[in-house]
Simulated assay, not measured.
Amino acid sequence: MSESLDDVLDHRTRVGQARRQKMLDRLIEASIMVFAERGLNGTVIDHVVRCAGVSRGTFYNYFDTIEDALETARIALGREVVLLVNDTVDAELPPAKRVALSLHVFIELARQHSLLLEFSARLGRHSFSFGSVLCQVEPGFHADGVQSGAFRDVPEELILDMLEVGTIAILGRVMAGEEVDVEAFVAAMLRVYGLGFEESVEAAMRPDPLVLPSIPDDSLLARGSVAWAKSHP
């Protein structure tokens, strides 16, 4: 039985959409690698197209500016990190333990994946922030913690700003090869929520072992990390 015209057109549409998505993924991966290496101010469109092996015309089929490419890359990589942290954090844990575990997982993922580390540390607040990761993993976590008495009623925006700045600083130290006491950092962040010293130290203890989520081979983080390792032996 021969295919109808509608079937043929539908097949062509699906093939075209798949090709377009594949090219977009290629440009996103290249953008992440270039921004991770050069930072925001050191990146221009020619860097991305050379890394992706495409023409400037192809770039402009998907993005208007280099800032558009950065925003798309930031959202794509951030979405994967959110899902990875979400797969690890038990929603039944007490609020302070959930915050602490999310921080430990986020920092360890960056430590083990140089591409994620460099992208987050170099771009700072232009990258996805830990605060946004936490809000998406645990929507309403701050209000719930305040209501339950686990946290003090500190403005959530202030806490998220401190988490963001603090995490960027820690990732910068890790990138520089410095020894970082992550437990002390996590405890300090928990004290921002209003926990006492001993309570924050206890909640900030890193699980042993710290179980990280498995990363699919076809994920942006996995593919990008492989390409990054090859170009940065």
Rank of each mutant, 00 (worst) to 15 (best):
E37Y: 00
L24Y: 07
I66K: 14
I32P: 02
Q21K: 11
D68Q: 08
K22R: 15
L70Q: 13
E67Q: 13
L77Q: 14
A18T: 13
Q21G: 03
Y60K: 09
V82R: 05
N86Q: 11
K22L: 14
N86L: 02
G53R: 08
V15S: 12
R19P: 00
R56A: 10
F59Y: 14
D68K: 05
D64I: 02
V82E: 14
R56V: 08
F35I: 07
G78E: 07
L27N: 07
Q17P: 00
V44A: 04
Q17W: 02
R20I: 01
R14K: 15
G78S: 05
V44P: 00
D64F: 03
G42E: 06
I75P: 00
E37D: 08
T72L: 06
Q21V: 10
E29T: 11
K22H: 10
A36L: 03
A52W: 07
N61Y: 07
A69T: 12
R26W: 00
Q21L: 15
G57P: 04
A30I: 10
R38Q: 11
F35R: 08
I28G: 02
V85W: 03
L40P: 00
V81Y: 03
A18G: 06
L83V: 02
I32H: 03
Y62V: 10
L24H: 11
F59Q: 10
T58R: 09
T72Y: 08
V81I: 15
M33T: 04
E37M: 03
L40C: 02
N61I: 01
V54D: 08
A76K: 14
T13V: 07
C51R: 15
S31E: 04
L24K: 14
G53K: 09
N61R: 15
Q21N: 09
V82A: 04
G53W: 03
I45M: 07
A18F: 05
L77A: 14
A36W: 04
L27S: 09
D46A: 13
T58G: 08
V49T: 15
Y60R: 15
R19T: 05
R56N: 12
F35Y: 13
R50F: 03
N41Y: 02
T65F: 04
R56P: 01
D68W: 05
A36V: 03
I28V: 15
T43P: 02
A30T: 07
R14D: 14
T13S: 11
Y60W: 10
G57E: 11
F35S: 06
R79L: 07
T72M: 04
K22T: 10
L83P: 00
G16L: 10
E67S: 14
